[in-house]
Design a protein around this nucleic acid. Sequence first.
DNA 1: AATATTCTTGACCGATAGGTCAAGAATATG
DNA 2: CATATTCTTGACCTATCGGTCAAGAATATT
Lengths: 203, 203
Amino acid sequence: MFDLVAMARPREFDCEIVSDKIMNLFWANGFEGTSMDELVNVTGLKKGSLYSSFGNKSRLFELALNRYCGPKNKKTSEILSPLETLADFLTKIINEADLPKSKRRGCLLMNSGLEFGNRDHELTSKIIDLLKMREQYFCSLIEEAKIRGEISKKINSQKAAARAFATAFTIREMCKFKPEKEFLSDIANSFLESIGTNKRVGL
Amino acid sequence: MFDLVAMARPREFDCEIVSDKIMNLFWANGFEGTSMDELVNVTGLKKGSLYSSFGNKSRLFELALNRYCGPKNKKTSEILSPLETLADFLTKIINEADLPKSKRRGCLLMNSGLEFGNRDHELTSKIIDLLKMREQYFCSLIEEAKIRGEISKKINSQKAAARAFATAFTIREMCKFKPEKEFLSDIANSFLESIGTNKRVGL
DNA sequence: AATATTCTTGACCGATAGGTCAAGAATATG
DNA sequence: CATATTCTTGACCTATCGGTCAAGAATATT
């Protein structure tokens, strides 16, 4: 019944590569801003293959969201301290201001939050959940920093995490139309100061 | 030649009312997210009238932008001090979190900055200019506050204005997917603290 | 080699996108 | 009242939207 007896014709494309291409297109243009035809062109797959393999446009976007949140970039956290991890991340997204504007595409999750947040769409709650997980990641960094004595235990972790989240949001999204590194650094440092550390990002 | 000899048939609609309806639709749905048919429905005008009166879709959006930035809301600034004006504004946009999500549509200019910022479109530079004017307005408030001795003269007005701008951005845009007033108030107060005032927004 | 199963392909669908235009309706002026 | 001018209307255009489907191509199993 559930045997793998019927492999029949194998798919000719690499699922991970295709997923990446789909994710990158949605990341650059958003959900509404991306057409099925563009997805067909960028993946090289025909429309029928896309639909039979992954489903409709919403399903493709969900694939992109999952891929975006997939197991990546987990290399840094072992070597660096939590506060260094945070500062490093902020520095990294500040440096996106140097990219040509077509590549300053912000954060896929935050872009999606802005696009879907105040609409009724099947993916809205999923996006909001993923965003909350991001915020919780910041919270874990803050709490670890407290444990290590890098910041005061009097800091409210949840509030600080929310401000970290807002700081990242501001940097990544305002970068689209105000890509000034001194400005973005000031935003980041204003947050770092608010959690009582002397650590700063350079400019 | 340039006489008003030919009034001929007068238009049957009120230009200001129509402009408001156009602005509100674009504000709610964005440029790409608004169709000409929806503009036809909401204005009550037929497509031909819209085009002959105002021009194409970009021109209609420009009309909306101008209307959004038009002479309104200039009542408060005379009575209140600059810092009170600022805090009042922050309080006002924080309270948008109480609205139903379909009405939490952010700021038209900032929405447009996000939608157009990293694209090539004829309106991109205009939008960025209008956003800069907003920032300059914050700057004038900060400088006035310094003159009145409400905040220290050591504060960098331009940097503080940029942070005020970023604070407003964060509140208005994150409100779409994270409409938590405690959170938004904390963002606002974190800014107020950064300019060295004891004034705070309530929650 | 025959068959069952899956993958791929391209034509096709109705709906909607932004935009045009000619003809008719309404009015201020001569 | 006739006319010039403007406004309004609805039909129409091409392009693209998301989505479907039947037929053909490729493979693992019998």
